[in-house]
Every structure is written in structure tokens, then in C-alpha cells.
Design a protein around this nucleic acid. Structure first.
Lengths: 209, 209
DNA sequence: AGTGACCGACCTACTACTCGGTAGGTCGCG
DNA sequence: CGCGACCTACCGAGTAGTAGGTCGGTCACT
């Protein structure tokens, strides 16, 4: 998501006005917005900052996205297409369904920017009248649904102590988020995927000691 | 934290300049800032908004707190004094040490504003150069330390499957945060304290089925 | 000739913050 | 008791800078 080339605001925007025609400028804007939302949040990010990083002016950004909210929604849609859509579309009943969640954690460990962006925007969506609110309500409902299906498939009725798959899935999703938050705050002292694996093991082997 | 009386910006500030002399105006500002940070986040809150809610002008706010960052730090200090300081100062080895965490969850269920404020500010502190960053790094370290001590006291060596108290404490804290996030997004479909209790039971009775 | 892709200039509203005041209370002193 | 010195608690006006967004244009390509 971060662009390693020199498309920063240091060069005058007009210089490269027609340069990257082959590359999709709209995607550049999307990438820049993603990065900045992860760095400063939605409310903390200005359209001009997005524009500068994408190598055009603020009005150029508004040419592609009619306003700031639309831009945020477009960024969020990217998440849907990448993560959620793919990760729960696995064939049901293939045994290790919970591997999908573990894989999501492992993927997150390699992409702190993605995790950070989601963590920041999810919490920010709790604020009044936040445009991402509906997105995250739906996302978590879907995550829980998918995780519950995975739990049912993998653990079946062998859940400890009268826990329902729905309860377990909420716990799993909660642990993912909470671990990632701690990991983002102190990357060196929290190993999120390992701890998530521990929780999973705890659920799978309820009679070990 | 919300003030039920009429101290809103609708009345002209000068009207009540000397009225509430007995009440501490500084505390009014603190309360207003707390509420607004929970509603709009730190970056989304303006000094004028804080001032209006506290019933004075923006310059009046700056009279008590030399700048916005100082105001945030003062609000955060309130959390420390209320929650953390009290909740882990229990006599060690009194048996049900983990009850403190459960009590914290139960308390949170009655104070969504407190939970929301902490969730929003914690995530926002992940953004670059956020003044609350150090606070939350320290807070989570302390939470984990306290929880680990509680785990050691209550579960002793009876942890399942080679899990260390430190790992369990990170999981517990993570579950708290994650559950609260889901609860804040959809209060009716997530019962945070109950789910936390389920996790706790899971840890205590590793051989039940 | 039209269309997509922008930019320059501009607008209004708001941001955190500063400066210089003033109203009223507290204090010591004669 | 009365008087000036000082202090706290603010407010009015103004600062430079930035916010999101509009309008009208220009340039290259089809």
C-alpha cells in the first residue's frame, strides 16, 4: 500500500501532470488515502494531504471522489474485496476452517499498515455520525458469522462448557482485535499470531492440562 | 461524566460568569472534554466545542489548560486515578483476583461513555505523533502486569497446555478490549461481560467438556 | 467537437493559539 | 475601617494557518 517511488509532495504537482498516464491515478489516490488514514485517522487526514502524497492537487482528488466521505467509503470497500470476501469463501466443512482466522492473523503480522488502518478506523467509527459506522457494524457481524461457521465445522459439538459457536466466535474475533491493538502499541512484547494460536488450542483441547 | 444541568452553550457565557463559583469550573471543562473525546475523538474535538459545552469561551479553556494536548493528558490522568489505580491495588493472593477484571467489565457495561472514550483514544493513539501514545503503552503494560499477577494468584500452575500467565493475561486484556468494541458497535447483540466470564471459565476449568 | 483529467483562484468556516484587557476577590498596612 | 497592591478568572479581538468544497477554465486525447 505504501508506494516506494518518489511520488511525494516534494515535487511540484504540475511537473508530472501527464507523466504516469498508464498507471491509474485513481488508484494512487486510493493508496495515498489508505496510508494516511492509517497514519492519522480519517478526521486527522486532510484532502490536501492525500493529494500531496498521490502527486496531484486537492481538486484533483475531488475529481475522482466527489467528497471526503466517498473517498473513505472507497478505501473501506478495498478491505471488503481483499480480506473478508476471500477469507470466508472457502468450501465449507473442509476440516481446518479456523485456519482461515489464523491465516488472517498471520497475514496481519506482515502488514501492520493494514491492521493499523482497520483498528484506527473501526474505533473512530464509534464516534458520532461517522461515515464508516455502518461498514464496521456489518463487517463485525459478518466476521462473527463466518467465524461461527468455522467453529461449527471444526469443533462441532465438542465445545467446552456449554459455549455456543456464536459465543466462541465473538471471543475469537475479540481476541484478534485486542491482540492486534496491543501488538501495534508494542510490537516487540506481543506476538499476536502466537497468542491467537494459543487461544485456538485452548478451545480445541478442552481436556488437556 | 455527562452533566445533566443546564451548563450548555445556549446561555450567554457572560451571564453566569461568577455564578458557579462554588463548583469547580476546571472540573466542568474536564468533564466536557471527556464527553467530547468520547463522542468525536481527540482530533475531531475542538477547543471551542469543549468550551461551549463547559459554558465558557475557548480562551477560558486555555486559561485552565495551556493547550489542547495538556487538556487531553489531564483527561487521561482521570482514568488512571479512577480505574487502574484502584483495580489492581487489591491485597495479593486473596483468591479471586480475576474478579477484578470481571468487575472492570461489569463496570464498563454500565458506563458506555467511559468504555467508548478509552476505546477511541487508545486506537487514535496509534496514529503518528499522538500525545496519548505513551499513556496507552504504559496502561496496557500495567494492565497485563496486573492481570498476570491475578492469573498467577488464582490459577497458579494449573494453566492449560503450557500457557504462561503472561500469555493468558495478554489474551484476557485483548478479549476485554475486543468484546467492548463489538459491544459498542452493536450493544444488543454482544454481551461483553458474559462473554468475558465464559473465557474466564474456559481458563479455570480446562478439563470440563 | 467532445470528453476525461485535471489545476488555479476563490470561498466560507473553522483550527489552535496569543495579546491585552477587566471585573471582582484577597491581602497587608496605616 | 479604608486603601492600594496583587491575584484569579476569565473575555474580546485578532493571529496565521488549514479545512472541505465550488467554479471556471485549460490541455491532451479520441
Amino acid at each position: 500500500m505504501t508506494q516506494p517511488d518518489g511520488h511525494r509532495g516534494d515535487r511540484h504537482p504540475a511537473d508530472q501532470r501527464r507523466s504516469g498516464r498508464s498507471r491509474n491515478r485513481r488508484d494512487d489516490v486510493l493508496r495515498a488515502a489508505f496510508d494516511l488514514f492509517a497514519e492519522r485517522g480519517y478526521r486527522g487526514t486532510s484532502l490536501s494531504a492525500v493529494a500531496a502524497r498521490a502527486g496531484l492537487t486537492q481538486q484533483g482528488v475531488l475529481h475522482y471522489f466527489s467528497n471526503k466521505e466517498t473517498l473513505l467509503l472507497a478505501v473501506l470497500q478495498l478491505f471488503d474485496e481483499r480480506d473478508a470476501g476471500r477469507l470466508f469463501s472457502a468450501p465449507p466443512g473442509d476440516g481446518a476452517a479456523l485456519d482461515h482466522l489464523a491465516a488472517l492473523m498471520a497475514y496481519g503480522a506482515t502488514r501492520p499498515d493494514v491492521v493499523r488502518s482497520l483498528a484506527i478506523l473501526a474505533a473512530e467509527s464509534l464516534t458520532d455520525d461517522h461515515p464508516a459506522r455502518a461498514f464496521f457494524v456489518a463487517r463485525y457481524a459478518e466476521l462473527r458469522r463466518g467465524a461461527a461457521a468455522a467453529v461449527r465445522a471444526e469443533l462441532g459439538g465438542a465445545l467446552p462448557d456449554g459455549l455456543s459457536p456464536e459465543e466462541v466466535s465473538a471471543l475469537l474475533v475479540a481476541a484478534m482485535d485486542g491482540l492486534q491493538l496491543q501488538w501495534l502499541l508494542e510490537p516487540d512484547s506481543v506476538d499476536a499470531p502466537a497468542l491467537f494460536a494459543a487461544l485456538r488450542k485452548l478451545l480445541r483441547n478442552p481436556s488437556s492440562q
